[in-house]
Simulated assay, not measured.
Amino acid sequence: MDGSLPPAEAVASFRTASGPYEAAGDPGEATAAAAGAAYARSLEAGRAREALAELAPLLDRALAPHAGGGATARQTRTVLMCRARVLGRPVREAPDEESAEAAVAGPEQGARELPAFTEPLRAERSVVTRFTEALDPLGDVTRYRGDPRGGPELYVRATAGIHDAGLPWYAVEYEARTAALATRLDEHDRAERAARAALEHRAAFVPAPGRAQLYLGLAEVLGAAGQFDEATEHAPEAGELWRELGDVLALVRTLRVRARIATRKGRSGPDAARQFMAAAERECEAAPASGPSQRAPAAGGAGGHPPPGR
Protein backbone atom coordinates (compact mmCIF):
# COMPACT_ATOMS: atom_id res chain seq x y z
CA MET A 1 0.00 0.00 0.00
CA ASP A 2 1.30 3.43 -0.96
CA GLY A 3 1.64 5.36 2.29
CA SER A 4 0.83 8.60 0.47
CA LEU A 5 -2.74 7.51 -0.27
CA PRO A 6 -5.62 8.66 1.92
CA PRO A 7 -7.49 5.66 3.39
CA ALA A 8 -10.46 5.92 0.99
CA GLU A 9 -8.15 5.79 -2.02
CA ALA A 10 -6.20 2.91 -0.52
CA VAL A 11 -9.47 0.99 -0.09
CA ALA A 12 -10.28 1.53 -3.77
CA SER A 13 -6.79 0.45 -4.83
CA PHE A 14 -6.97 -2.79 -2.86
CA ARG A 15 -10.44 -3.54 -4.21
CA THR A 16 -9.23 -2.91 -7.76
CA ALA A 17 -6.36 -5.34 -7.18
CA SER A 18 -8.62 -8.04 -5.71
CA GLY A 19 -10.85 -8.44 -8.77
CA PRO A 20 -8.21 -9.49 -11.32
CA TYR A 21 -6.71 -12.01 -8.86
CA GLU A 22 -10.12 -13.57 -8.40
CA ALA A 23 -10.69 -13.67 -12.16
CA ALA A 24 -7.27 -15.26 -12.68
CA GLY A 25 -8.13 -18.11 -10.31
CA ASP A 26 -5.97 -16.97 -7.39
CA PRO A 27 -8.44 -16.74 -4.48
CA GLY A 28 -5.67 -16.51 -1.86
CA GLU A 29 -4.19 -13.36 -3.38
CA ALA A 30 -7.66 -11.90 -3.94
CA THR A 31 -8.51 -12.49 -0.28
CA ALA A 32 -5.25 -10.86 0.88
CA ALA A 33 -6.01 -7.79 -1.24
CA ALA A 34 -9.56 -7.59 0.12
CA ALA A 35 -8.14 -7.78 3.67
CA GLY A 36 -5.86 -4.86 2.83
CA ALA A 37 -8.93 -2.89 1.77
CA ALA A 38 -10.60 -3.64 5.11
CA TYR A 39 -7.49 -2.54 7.02
CA ALA A 40 -7.33 0.71 5.04
CA ARG A 41 -11.02 1.32 5.79
CA SER A 42 -10.33 0.97 9.52
CA LEU A 43 -7.94 3.95 9.30
CA GLU A 44 -10.94 6.21 8.76
CA ALA A 45 -12.26 7.43 12.10
CA GLY A 46 -15.05 5.31 13.52
CA ARG A 47 -14.97 2.61 10.83
CA ALA A 48 -13.09 -0.15 12.66
CA ARG A 49 -16.29 -2.09 13.42
CA GLU A 50 -17.26 -2.04 9.75
CA ALA A 51 -13.77 -3.21 8.79
CA LEU A 52 -13.98 -6.12 11.25
CA ALA A 53 -17.27 -7.20 9.69
CA GLU A 54 -15.57 -7.26 6.29
CA LEU A 55 -12.65 -9.27 7.65
CA ALA A 56 -14.69 -12.05 9.29
CA PRO A 57 -15.56 -13.96 6.07
CA LEU A 58 -12.14 -13.17 4.61
CA LEU A 59 -10.44 -14.86 7.56
CA ASP A 60 -12.57 -17.97 7.16
CA ARG A 61 -11.83 -17.94 3.45
CA ALA A 62 -8.08 -17.63 4.01
CA LEU A 63 -7.76 -20.30 6.70
CA ALA A 64 -9.80 -22.91 4.81
CA PRO A 65 -7.82 -22.69 1.54
CA HIS A 66 -4.54 -22.64 3.47
CA ALA A 67 -5.46 -25.87 5.21
CA GLY A 68 -6.19 -27.39 1.79
CA GLY A 69 -3.20 -25.86 0.03
CA GLY A 70 -5.24 -23.21 -1.82
CA ALA A 71 -3.65 -20.21 -0.09
CA THR A 72 -0.05 -19.63 0.87
CA ALA A 73 1.18 -18.94 4.38
CA ARG A 74 2.05 -15.42 3.25
CA GLN A 75 -1.51 -14.74 2.09
CA THR A 76 -3.07 -16.20 5.23
CA ARG A 77 -0.86 -14.33 7.68
CA THR A 78 -1.57 -11.10 5.74
CA VAL A 79 -5.27 -11.54 6.52
CA LEU A 80 -4.44 -12.32 10.17
CA MET A 81 -2.19 -9.26 10.36
CA CYS A 82 -4.89 -7.01 8.95
CA ARG A 83 -7.35 -8.36 11.49
CA ALA A 84 -4.91 -7.85 14.37
CA ARG A 85 -4.34 -4.25 13.28
CA VAL A 86 -8.05 -3.52 12.96
CA LEU A 87 -8.75 -5.06 16.37
CA GLY A 88 -6.25 -2.60 17.80
CA ARG A 89 -7.92 0.48 16.33
CA PRO A 90 -10.49 0.96 19.15
CA VAL A 91 -7.63 1.13 21.67
CA ARG A 92 -5.73 3.72 19.63
CA GLU A 93 -8.89 5.75 19.00
CA ALA A 94 -10.15 5.59 22.60
CA PRO A 95 -10.89 9.04 24.03
CA ASP A 96 -9.49 8.17 27.47
CA GLU A 97 -7.57 5.52 29.42
CA GLU A 98 -10.73 3.89 30.77
CA SER A 99 -12.14 3.38 27.26
CA ALA A 100 -8.81 2.03 26.04
CA GLU A 101 -8.65 -0.50 28.88
CA ALA A 102 -12.18 -1.67 28.07
CA ALA A 103 -11.19 -2.24 24.42
CA VAL A 104 -7.91 -4.03 25.04
CA ALA A 105 -9.33 -7.56 24.74
CA GLY A 106 -9.63 -7.08 20.98
CA PRO A 107 -5.95 -6.46 20.17
CA GLU A 108 -4.94 -9.12 22.68
CA GLN A 109 -6.96 -11.72 20.81
CA GLY A 110 -5.66 -10.65 17.39
CA ALA A 111 -2.07 -10.32 18.56
CA ARG A 112 -2.03 -13.86 19.97
CA GLU A 113 -3.65 -15.43 16.91
CA LEU A 114 -0.94 -14.23 14.56
CA PRO A 115 2.09 -15.60 16.46
CA ALA A 116 0.24 -18.90 16.88
CA PHE A 117 0.02 -19.15 13.08
CA THR A 118 3.46 -17.79 12.20
CA GLU A 119 5.61 -19.32 14.95
CA PRO A 120 6.11 -22.64 13.08
CA LEU A 121 7.10 -20.63 9.96
CA ARG A 122 9.62 -18.26 11.51
CA ALA A 123 12.46 -19.70 9.44
CA GLU A 124 10.87 -18.07 6.38
CA ARG A 125 12.33 -14.59 5.92
CA SER A 126 9.04 -13.18 4.62
CA VAL A 127 7.15 -14.38 7.70
CA VAL A 128 9.41 -13.05 10.43
CA THR A 129 8.29 -9.46 9.88
CA ARG A 130 4.66 -10.41 10.42
CA PHE A 131 5.53 -12.40 13.53
CA THR A 132 7.35 -9.44 15.03
CA GLU A 133 4.54 -7.05 14.03
CA ALA A 134 2.22 -9.10 16.22
CA LEU A 135 4.35 -8.06 19.19
CA ASP A 136 3.32 -4.43 18.61
CA PRO A 137 -0.34 -4.77 19.66
CA LEU A 138 0.83 -7.03 22.47
CA GLY A 139 2.87 -4.05 23.66
CA ASP A 140 -0.36 -2.06 23.92
CA VAL A 141 -1.92 -4.94 25.81
CA THR A 142 0.87 -5.09 28.40
CA ARG A 143 0.56 -1.36 29.00
CA TYR A 144 -3.15 -1.56 29.75
CA ARG A 145 -2.68 -4.72 31.79
CA GLY A 146 -0.53 -2.76 34.24
CA ASP A 147 2.94 -3.76 33.00
CA PRO A 148 4.56 -0.54 31.74
CA ARG A 149 7.96 -2.20 31.21
CA GLY A 150 6.54 -5.07 29.19
CA GLY A 151 5.99 -2.91 26.09
CA PRO A 152 9.64 -1.90 25.61
CA GLU A 153 10.73 -5.50 26.16
CA LEU A 154 8.38 -6.69 23.40
CA TYR A 155 9.62 -3.98 21.02
CA VAL A 156 13.24 -4.93 21.75
CA ARG A 157 12.33 -8.54 20.98
CA ALA A 158 10.67 -7.47 17.73
CA THR A 159 13.71 -5.41 16.76
CA ALA A 160 16.08 -8.31 17.41
CA GLY A 161 13.99 -10.65 15.29
CA ILE A 162 13.95 -8.24 12.38
CA HIS A 163 17.71 -7.67 12.56
CA ASP A 164 18.28 -11.42 12.68
CA ALA A 165 16.28 -11.66 9.44
CA GLY A 166 18.54 -9.05 7.81
CA LEU A 167 15.80 -6.42 7.50
CA PRO A 168 17.07 -3.51 9.66
CA TRP A 169 14.93 -0.88 7.91
CA TYR A 170 11.84 -2.72 9.13
CA ALA A 171 12.90 -2.17 12.73
CA VAL A 172 12.54 1.63 12.64
CA GLU A 173 8.98 1.61 13.99
CA TYR A 174 9.86 -0.60 16.96
CA GLU A 175 13.04 1.33 17.75
CA ALA A 176 11.07 4.59 17.75
CA ARG A 177 8.40 3.17 20.04
CA THR A 178 11.04 1.69 22.35
CA ALA A 179 12.63 5.13 22.62
CA ALA A 180 9.33 6.83 23.46
CA LEU A 181 8.30 4.29 26.11
CA ALA A 182 11.77 4.07 27.66
CA THR A 183 11.83 7.88 28.00
CA ARG A 184 8.57 7.77 29.97
CA LEU A 185 10.17 5.17 32.25
CA ASP A 186 13.28 7.37 32.70
CA GLU A 187 15.40 4.66 31.04
CA HIS A 188 17.41 7.29 29.20
CA ASP A 189 20.27 5.08 27.98
CA ARG A 190 17.89 2.59 26.38
CA ALA A 191 15.82 5.41 24.91
CA GLU A 192 18.85 7.08 23.37
CA ARG A 193 20.18 3.83 21.86
CA ALA A 194 16.82 3.07 20.31
CA ALA A 195 16.27 6.61 18.97
CA ARG A 196 19.73 6.71 17.39
CA ALA A 197 19.24 3.27 15.85
CA ALA A 198 15.92 4.35 14.34
CA LEU A 199 17.57 7.34 12.69
CA GLU A 200 20.50 5.24 11.52
CA HIS A 201 18.21 2.71 9.81
CA ARG A 202 15.85 5.24 8.26
CA ALA A 203 18.06 5.77 5.14
CA ALA A 204 15.85 5.92 2.06
CA PHE A 205 13.21 3.64 3.53
CA VAL A 206 11.28 6.19 5.59
CA PRO A 207 9.35 9.00 3.86
CA ALA A 208 9.82 12.62 4.92
CA PRO A 209 7.10 12.68 7.62
CA GLY A 210 8.67 9.64 9.26
CA ARG A 211 12.16 11.17 9.12
CA ALA A 212 10.87 14.36 10.71
CA GLN A 213 9.26 12.39 13.53
CA LEU A 214 12.49 10.46 14.10
CA TYR A 215 14.52 13.67 14.37
CA LEU A 216 11.99 15.10 16.78
CA GLY A 217 11.90 11.86 18.78
CA LEU A 218 15.68 11.89 19.21
CA ALA A 219 15.55 15.55 20.26
CA GLU A 220 12.95 14.74 22.93
CA VAL A 221 14.94 11.75 24.19
CA LEU A 222 18.16 13.78 24.41
CA GLY A 223 16.35 16.66 26.07
CA ALA A 224 14.88 14.33 28.69
CA ALA A 225 18.38 12.96 29.34
CA GLY A 226 19.82 16.46 29.81
CA GLN A 227 21.83 16.45 26.55
CA PHE A 228 20.47 19.83 25.54
CA ASP A 229 23.12 20.91 23.02
CA GLU A 230 22.61 17.92 20.76
CA ALA A 231 18.86 18.01 21.29
CA THR A 232 18.77 21.56 19.94
CA GLU A 233 20.57 20.35 16.80
CA HIS A 234 18.01 17.69 15.86
CA ALA A 235 14.75 19.52 16.59
CA PRO A 236 15.32 22.19 13.88
CA GLU A 237 15.93 19.40 11.33
CA ALA A 238 12.45 18.09 12.09
CA GLY A 239 11.02 21.59 11.83
CA GLU A 240 12.53 22.17 8.39
CA LEU A 241 11.02 18.94 7.07
CA TRP A 242 7.59 19.82 8.45
CA ARG A 243 7.85 23.27 6.89
CA GLU A 244 8.74 21.76 3.49
CA LEU A 245 5.78 19.39 3.80
CA GLY A 246 3.43 22.22 4.71
CA ASP A 247 2.35 20.48 7.93
CA VAL A 248 1.82 23.48 10.20
CA LEU A 249 0.42 21.49 13.13
CA ALA A 250 3.50 19.26 13.23
CA LEU A 251 5.75 22.31 12.90
CA VAL A 252 4.02 23.92 15.87
CA ARG A 253 4.50 20.72 17.91
CA THR A 254 8.19 20.85 17.03
CA LEU A 255 8.46 24.45 18.18
CA ARG A 256 6.80 23.51 21.46
CA VAL A 257 9.36 20.73 21.95
CA ARG A 258 12.14 23.22 21.29
CA ALA A 259 10.57 25.54 23.86
CA ARG A 260 10.50 22.79 26.49
CA ILE A 261 14.13 21.92 25.78
CA ALA A 262 15.12 25.58 26.02
CA THR A 263 13.29 25.95 29.33
CA ARG A 264 15.19 23.02 30.81
CA LYS A 265 18.52 24.07 29.33
CA GLY A 266 19.44 26.78 31.76
CA ARG A 267 19.59 30.46 32.45
CA SER A 268 18.83 31.65 28.89
CA GLY A 269 16.12 29.02 28.49
CA PRO A 270 12.98 31.03 29.38
CA ASP A 271 13.76 33.77 26.85
CA ALA A 272 14.44 31.21 24.14
CA ALA A 273 11.29 29.31 25.06
CA ARG A 274 9.21 32.48 24.73
CA GLN A 275 10.68 33.05 21.28
CA PHE A 276 9.76 29.54 20.13
CA MET A 277 6.22 29.86 21.48
CA ALA A 278 5.84 33.21 19.74
CA ALA A 279 7.01 31.57 16.52
CA ALA A 280 4.45 28.80 17.05
CA GLU A 281 1.71 31.40 17.46
CA ARG A 282 2.74 33.10 14.22
CA GLU A 283 2.69 29.77 12.37
CA CYS A 284 -0.83 29.11 13.65
CA GLU A 285 -2.03 32.53 12.52
CA ALA A 286 -0.54 31.98 9.05
CA ALA A 287 -1.90 28.45 8.71
CA PRO A 288 -4.79 27.67 6.34
CA ALA A 289 -8.12 26.87 7.96
CA SER A 290 -7.80 23.14 7.27
CA GLY A 291 -4.88 20.96 8.30
CA PRO A 292 -3.08 18.36 6.20
CA SER A 293 -5.24 15.63 4.74
CA GLN A 294 -5.56 12.35 6.57
CA ARG A 295 -3.28 9.75 5.04
CA ALA A 296 -2.67 6.09 5.39
CA PRO A 297 0.49 5.17 7.32
CA ALA A 298 3.63 5.07 5.23
CA ALA A 299 5.53 1.84 4.90
CA GLY A 300 8.18 1.57 7.53
CA GLY A 301 7.47 5.06 8.81
CA ALA A 302 7.86 6.18 12.35
CA GLY A 303 4.77 6.84 14.32
CA GLY A 304 2.72 4.52 12.19
CA HIS A 305 2.76 0.91 11.16
CA PRO A 306 4.11 -0.61 7.99
CA PRO A 307 1.02 -1.51 5.97
CA PRO A 308 0.11 -5.19 5.84
CA GLY A 309 2.04 -6.33 2.83
CA ARG A 310 1.03 -9.18 0.68
Results as ranks from 00 to 15, higher is better:
1 M>T: 10
293 S>Y: 00
209 P>D: 09
100 A>H: 10
273 A>Q: 07
103 A>S: 14
201 H>Q: 14
193 R>M: 05
74 R>C: 02
88 G>M: 03
229 D>T: 15
116 A>S: 04
225 A>N: 00
39 Y>E: 10
68 G>E: 11
24 A>W: 02
310 R>L: 15
103 A>T: 05
63 L>K: 05
177 R>M: 05
93 E>T: 12
195 A>Q: 07
67 A>S: 13
65 P>A: 10
268 S>L: 15
185 L>W: 04
118 T>R: 08
9 E>N: 08
305 H>E: 07
66 H>F: 10
219 A>S: 15
20 P>G: 02
104 V>C: 08
212 A>Q: 13
93 E>W: 12
90 P>R: 11
278 A>Y: 01
151 G>V: 00
198 A>Q: 10
2 D>C: 01
280 A>L: 09
224 A>V: 07
201 H>E: 12
107 P>T: 06
117 F>V: 06
156 V>E: 14
23 A>Y: 01
58 L>C: 12
23 A>K: 14
119 E>T: 11
269 G>E: 03
224 A>R: 13
256 R>V: 15
176 A>Y: 15
243 R>C: 07
141 V>D: 12
154 L>T: 07
95 P>G: 12
171 A>W: 03
150 G>A: 08
198 A>T: 07
227 Q>V: 15
189 D>E: 15
254 T>L: 11
299 A>F: 14
274 R>Y: 08
166 G>Q: 04
61 R>L: 08
284 C>F: 00
94 A>I: 05
84 A>W: 02
201 H>N: 13
69 G>A: 11
171 A>L: 06
86 V>P: 09
259 A>L: 11
186 D>G: 05
219 A>T: 12
99 S>L: 06
269 G>T: 07
241 L>M: 13
225 A>I: 01
13 S>D: 12
32 A>Q: 01
132 T>A: 15
195 A>D: 12
214 L>A: 08
141 V>E: 09
3 G>A: 02
13 S>E: 13
255 L>S: 14
298 A>M: 00
51 A>W: 01
32 A>L: 04
303 G>R: 07
151 G>R: 14
306 P>N: 05
143 R>H: 13
92 R>V: 09
39 Y>N: 06
40 A>C: 03
37 A>F: 00
87 L>H: 03
204 A>Y: 09
230 E>I: 06
287 A>Y: 13
258 R>A: 15
265 K>P: 00
9 E>F: 02
116 A>P: 00
74 R>D: 10
276 F>T: 07
44 E>R: 09
12 A>Q: 15
39 Y>M: 02
151 G>Q: 12
222 L>Y: 11
250 A>W: 07
87 L>K: 03
52 L>V: 14
231 A>M: 04
59 L>G: 01
90 P>G: 11
70 G>A: 10
262 A>P: 00
23 A>Q: 11
9 E>R: 07
203 A>L: 02
163 H>S: 04
225 A>R: 01
202 R>V: 09
278 A>E: 09
